[in-house]
Simulated scan of single mutants.
Amino acid sequence: MNNTVISKNEGAVAWVRLNRPERLNAMNRQLVDGLSRALADAEADEGIRAVIIHGEGRAFCSGDDLKDLDAQTACEADTQAWVEAIQNITLQIMQSRKIVIAAVHGWCVGGALEWAINCDFRLFSESARWFFPEVTYGLFVTGGVTALLTKQVGPQVTKELLMLGERHDARKALDVGIAWKVVPDDRLLEEARGLALRIAERPADAVADAKRAINAGLHSTLQDAMARETAATVRGFLSPQAQARAKEF
């Protein structure tokens, strides 16, 4: 039984909780597959209008679980399958007819940060800390962020965030436009619930059409960006130098 992602429905809202607190909800294959199923279930449920993704314990998600690196990159085919599974979450979030909300607390790193950027609204708690470690390791980002971030925050800030890999707080996320709103830690889930319920009050088709039109208009090169990212990420994962750096983390 896969308990790394736990879903529950509360009226028109689907709560999707990443549940590997002992690893700061780091991404392994079970968690990625569990999140994919949870998103698919929410998409198929006509009664669900909004999805809230959040994390159990001290973090939203600390990114790729580097303890599983050997299993994820045993050969090129396995690496390709792993990266495509991560990228598929992006497609599920951005192509969904539901509004997807990221409720971020604690660490939000790498692939998890990229998933958060894919969400329609991003609420950060005051404790949130985030960064892109991939380029520092000799790896590469996913989630279409080379296209999404460049258009949202501009090429200069995108280069700063991806190339320098510095750690940032919630205020920086708000300042550059990654966070929609920063709230006290003890208000994070309640704020996310309130937003989801406001969205649920609006006509479902109109909300879905608005999301689709905005994403298509703003991110028309998403597929091309993700194809480039997949190839670069696979090359990075298979690099002995990158694997050695990641294992030292």
Rank of each mutant, 00 (worst) to 15 (best):
P21R: 15
D185L: 08
R202L: 13
K8H: 14
G236L: 00
G236N: 04
A196M: 10
E248I: 11
L174H: 14
R235F: 00
A44V: 06
D209C: 06
T73K: 15
D65Q: 05
T146Q: 08
E166K: 15
R193Y: 08
G11A: 06
A232V: 00
L66P: 04
L69F: 10
G34F: 10
M1P: 09
L18Q: 08
K151Q: 13
E76T: 13
V157P: 01
F132Y: 07
I6P: 03
A210N: 07
R29Y: 07
S220G: 15
V5R: 06
L238N: 10
L35M: 06
R245E: 03
L195A: 11
E201F: 08
N2Y: 03
R235I: 00
M27E: 10
R187K: 09
I214F: 06
V141P: 03
E160T: 05
A128Y: 01
L35Y: 08
A42P: 10
W15R: 08
A208V: 01
V182S: 05
N3L: 11
F132T: 07
I53N: 08
V234Y: 02
V109F: 06
L218S: 12
A103G: 12
T158W: 02
L31H: 11
V16W: 01
A225C: 01
S127M: 01
A173M: 11
V32R: 00
P133Y: 00
N118A: 11
A44E: 07
R245S: 04
Q92I: 12
N2H: 07
L24T: 08
K172L: 11
V32I: 12
A85E: 15
V16I: 09
T136I: 09
F237S: 05
V51D: 00
F249K: 05
L222N: 00
N3M: 12
S96C: 13
Q241E: 07
K172D: 09
G138I: 00
A244H: 13
D186N: 09
